[in-house]
């Protein structure tokens, strides 16, 4: 984990409020797993004061480049979208991501993303495919105008889109698509998205192994401030830290409040 003024190679709009920033720097060489995140300082002043945790959507360790996809909805992310930065203050890589082992070969994996939880699944999918797994993506969005990366995911495997308003793909939630398409028989699932989605997916796919990536309001991002905890079922450790114990947890580990 380092702090680095990373070079901004690109910052392009993908969909309504959705941006993709491409960064280069030494930090990339330290990334271990897909699903890790970086903590970005968007202002050199005091507003907003804290860094923004943003997941890494892809990385290339030969070229030391990575991309992050973010939704410009709050003060900090709007600063990221609007400012013509040459460099940006990045702390990372942080957290523990999805483990991709050799034993995924030949297995059928289900990747489930919701909204701004979709990005880290892209690098995960690339690595799963590289190791010989077959992947199916079920991606949920509010509406057609915020859909992104459909083409990129399609190049890696079957990609099904659900929108809450039916303006693109199937109308409904990711769980509706999983049921309609008979996807519950995958060998394992990987999910990232809002808590209600994670809870619904865990219930629907209780019979197969799975991993979920959690989101929580964060302070330091390195495990010191104890702001971003989540409740776990293990009675001996009532809370775990999303920033360092996660953001990726095993299915069944968390209590969704």
């Amino acid at each position: 984990m380092i702090r680095e003024q990373m070079k901004v190679l690109g910052n392009k709009k993908l969909a309504h409020q959705i941006y993709e920033m491409t960064l280069s720097g030494e930090l990339v060489s330290l990334i271990r797993t897909p699903g890790q995140f970086v903590h970005i300082r968007t202002s050199s002043g005091n507003d907003p004061l804290l860094r923004r945790p943003i997941s890494i959507s892809s990385y290339n360790q030969e070229e030391n480049t990575m991309t992050v996809i973010y939704r410009a909805s709050g003060l900090g992310t709007k600063q990221m979208a609007e400012s013509p930065y040459d460099t940006i203050d990045v702390l990372g890589p942080l957290g523990s991501g999805y483990q991709v082992n050799e034993d995924v070969k030949g297995k059928s994996m289900l990747l489930i993303g919701g909204g701004i939880g979709v990005p880290p699944l892209y690098e995960l999918s690339k690595q799963l495919v590289e190791k010989g797994a077959s992947v199916t993506h079920v991606l949920g969005f509010e509406s057609a105008r915020v859909v992104f990366y459909e083409k990129e995911f399609s190049e890696l495997g079957q990609t099904l889109i659900a929108t809450a308003d039916g303006s693109h793909g199937c109308k409904g939630f990711v769980t509706n698509v999983i049921e309609q398409q008979g996807l519950i028989h995958a060998d394992a699932f990987y999910a990232c998205g809002p808590v209600p989605m994670l809870a619904a997916v865990e219930e629907q796919l209780a019979h197969i192994p799975g991993f979920v990536s959690m989101e929580q309001r964060m302070g330091c991002g390195v495990g010191a401030c104890l702001a971003c905890v989540c409740e776990v079922k293990d009675p001996d450790v009532p809370y775990k830290k999303v920033c360092t114990d996660g953001p990726v947890f095993r299915k069944g580990e968390l209590i969704y409040g």
Binding site: N46, P48, L50, Q216, L226, Y239, G257
Partner: peptide, 23 residues
């Protein structure tokens, strides 16, 4: 001590609010 339920932090102008609860 397990501390308080989440959310435990919120940002404000030039500052932040926290209620960790002595975890």
């Amino acid at each position: 001590r397990a501390g308080n339920p989440v959310p435990r932090v919120a940002e404000t102008s030039s500052g932040m609010l926290n209620a960790i609860g002595l975890q």
